[in-house]
Design a protein around this nucleic acid. Sequence first.
DNA 1: CATCTAAACGGACCATGGTCCGGTTTCATT
DNA 2: AATGAAACCGGACCATGGTCCGTTTAGATG
Lengths: 202, 202
Amino acid sequence: MSERPLLPILGQDVRERSDAARNRKALLEAAQRLVDHCGVESVTMDAVAEAAGVGKGTVFRRFRTRSGLMAALLDQFEADWQASVIGGPPPLGPGAPPRERLLAFGRSRLEQNLRGAALIRAASTAAPARNYAVYSFAATHLRYLLDQLDVAGDIALLSTALMAPLEVVILEQQIEIEGMDVERIAAGWEDLAERIIARRRS
Amino acid sequence: MSERPLLPILGQDVRERSDAARNRKALLEAAQRLVDHCGVESVTMDAVAEAAGVGKGTVFRRFRTRSGLMAALLDQFEADWQASVIGGPPPLGPGAPPRERLLAFGRSRLEQNLRGAALIRAASTAAPARNYAVYSFAATHLRYLLDQLDVAGDIALLSTALMAPLEVVILEQQIEIEGMDVERIAAGWEDLAERIIARRRS
DNA sequence: CATCTAAACGGACCATGGTCCGGTTTCATT
DNA sequence: AATGAAACCGGACCATGGTCCGTTTAGATG
């Protein structure tokens, strides 16, 4: 399971020196261990460096920033979910009619975002390009579904309109401050989806 | 054994000591000056403290965190906008039919969020309760409009669905990464609003 | 194998957000 | 005015993210 970003990133690449590759793997493993063990927020870069038996500078060379490192972990975390969207069982995976896939997508994405909330938050500060990759997959899939459904209008924007209420910031506000429960939010999303897909191309 | 008048619990903190009030004002002014002059991101807490002629500890005592201070500035920034929603000229202010007010709300909120983007971002890290206030006003007003329009469904959720795509994070992604222009986003929002308000209570 | 270069390494160093605590100030009460 | 206590103040101090640069190493070339 290579951890190269799924989407082709323009240019660069070239090939990583063997020591660099070894260190990157060690760092990711160490970071994952620390996250599992202490929780995302209490994982410091120094700790990761030490746990990987590597200098601090190396961590920053590999991942640029703390959120960059977290984004790398997030990529791994998302891999399973992406796989089940691409090739898993219906209705999330292929095989079900688009409308059912859409509804399954919403619920599943909602849960996935909540599961990865801490990681997502830690990965989101700055570095807009990096965690765009993970967002991008979901957005692309969603656009595909809307297109399949012959939805009329600006599909890129409508897709954003469906993704936005599933963002962690929004979800946590609803759950923690307004005291909504997940079921209500999921049902509300489905209603939203219905309203959006109600207008079709003639 | 003095009895402080028991004000409504929500407000708490009945009265501020005069020196504290003076310092808070000085800090807010200094911070605003620095923000105007150097931009939000390059304003450090030490700088604010010094510019206000006050110890660093005082800044943190008053505003708790950096984002707390930014949230305070944001409150001031939002005051004008809130006033024009409550009592400004139509269609944003009262007097226009709800549907027109709704559409004006979207566009106006979109622009307002973009104008305050840097401040909003700086205020948003952690401290969920603080910047909830500014969010809350817009959300409440939106719910009111949806209610006026006899929109069917879970109005709190639908209101969130309309607010979420206007969040700074989302907007900047669309503008900077996907290269959309503001006009397109605004038009898309209006379309979204139309779809949402299309279903009314019988 | 000797050599050379670009890349990687490490850890000292810096900047900044946030905490702590001894001393000071406000202000209600007497 | 004197008093007492709660609130406030300041700046030294700590933790952590991020930078810098002299040194080491992979691996290509002859």
